[in-house]
Design a binder for these strands. Structure first.
Lengths: 234, 234
DNA sequence: CGTGCGTTTGAGTGAATTCAACGGCTGTGG
DNA sequence: CCACAGCCGTTGAATTCACTCAAACGCACG
């Protein structure tokens, strides 16, 4: 079950954004600050952005494409703990060593900033620290939500939840263009690729979704999907 | 599979710690600040500290005992996303509504502080914000680690990982006094109570652990346990 | 037109679940 | 002191859902 043999890390710098513009005026948001300080980089499909146990040198923000945060076990099993979509900031951890690796799901562009410079700038603006804290809490919330899936849900419930989550995060009304492969979905949901495939075709047979092409999914009955996954009580 | 029918929420205030002592001197740590501002409360076994969808009014720190953070599905399935042990701070989220409920695992004492007062005080000391941010990152790290278990590990690996994690967090050298029931363990690891029981007795037969009484577990072969759970590659 | 990759589908297996019964401990009350 | 109930944990037998192994399909690309 060993997946990709580490596609060549084809990453190239594209332009060179203007550096911190003279004035040390407060940055209204983390996003703005990254835009001001960041360098745009392009990563090819399946290339590694950083690896497990590597020193955490940079902070990243997804511009387009998608990034997966994953960990590989010695026997080839892989767990993807999160997908980062455009707008998401990632790569920041307490440790200065990454515990998971980050890879580009498809061809992906990110902004990168030196961790040291980033933290120095952030520290200067208490508001930014609060924002980053809030962001981390949000990631934690998402991780906790994901545990619900992984813990005690069957394949249908996982897939349903996944599709609804993705539709919401991509902000698309029912027509999802999947950035990731079936294998990625499987490793995210704790299933095998075969089970993901079977479950999707079953959902299509039941009329809850349509799959015009494999990387595109149309939510036909969001209510029904919500009911299957939303077996959460108040 | 509906567990406890909500034991009476027997919570009582014990003493009344000194309020913010005159001077607004910087608090060196979040822990100190909670100790200074907090009120000691006692919660009986299985009583609810706060419930899902309740407004987040307080911040808590475990003094002794243990707390579980859980969510219940309408059909009775339960997922425990974390256990909080003495020293852990919990109850702080971006939302001002709790997404999970928190219950005392055994008889438990916690310090509680009004969320508003807490945040006001924290905001006054940038260092505290950084500390809390680091704490949240740590919780995130733990959540991600937990996902590895829930995603693609078998029962033995989950139990082994759980025992090692608990031994480390409790700081006990091999002799674990379990604060929680088998059902709690099952709901934390995404297994059934029967599977937990069977797996534990199997590990005992194999000589990796000893179970003098059900709530006490002795790690006999940590290396072997580490190998089973540690099938993580570098 | 073949090759390679990602996806789908089928058949058989297996690990964990479900259903069910039993054992041990604790506290209560006769 | 014993009897009994209630809870928690263990054990057994049968079932099931997702997994493994295997093959075929479709599509893109050289």
């Amino acid at each position: 079950m060993l997946h990709w043999q580490g596609a060549p890390a084809t990453a190239e710098v594209v332009p060179l954004r203007a550096k911190t513009k003279g004035t040390k005026a407060a940055h209204p948001s983390v996003s703005d600050m990254l835009s001001a300080m960041g360098v745009r980089m392009r990563y090819a499909r399946n290339s590694e952005i950083y690896g497990e146990d590597e020193p955490a040198e940079f902070v990243y923000k997804v511009l387009n494409g998608a990034v997966r945060l994953s960990k590989l076990m010695s026997d080839g099993r892989r767990q993807i703990s999160a997908f980062y979509l455009p707008g998401d900031v990632f790569g920041l951890e307490t440790d200065d060593t990454h515990l998971f690796s980050a890879e580009a799901v498809g061809d992906t562009e990110v902004l990168i900033v030196k961790r040291g410079a980033f933290l120095a700038e952030v520290t200067r603006h208490p508001e930014l620290v609060r924002q980053l804290w809030a962001q981390t809490m949000d990631h934690l919330r998402r991780a906790q939500h994901h545990m619900l899936l992984l813990g005690r849900k069957n394949a249908q419930e996982r897939i349903a939840a996944f599709l609804l989550e993705l539709a919401e995060r991509l902000g698309c009304n029912g027509k999802i263009r999947l950035p990731m492969s079936r294998q990625d979905i499987a490793d995210y949901l704790g299933l095998t690729i075969e089970t993901v495939s079977r479950t999707l075709t079953q959902l299509e047979r039941d009329g809850l979704i349509a799959i015009p092409v494999s990387r595109q999914i149309v939510l036909r009955d969001r209510t029904a999907l919500g009911i299957m996954h939303g077996s959460l009580a108040a």
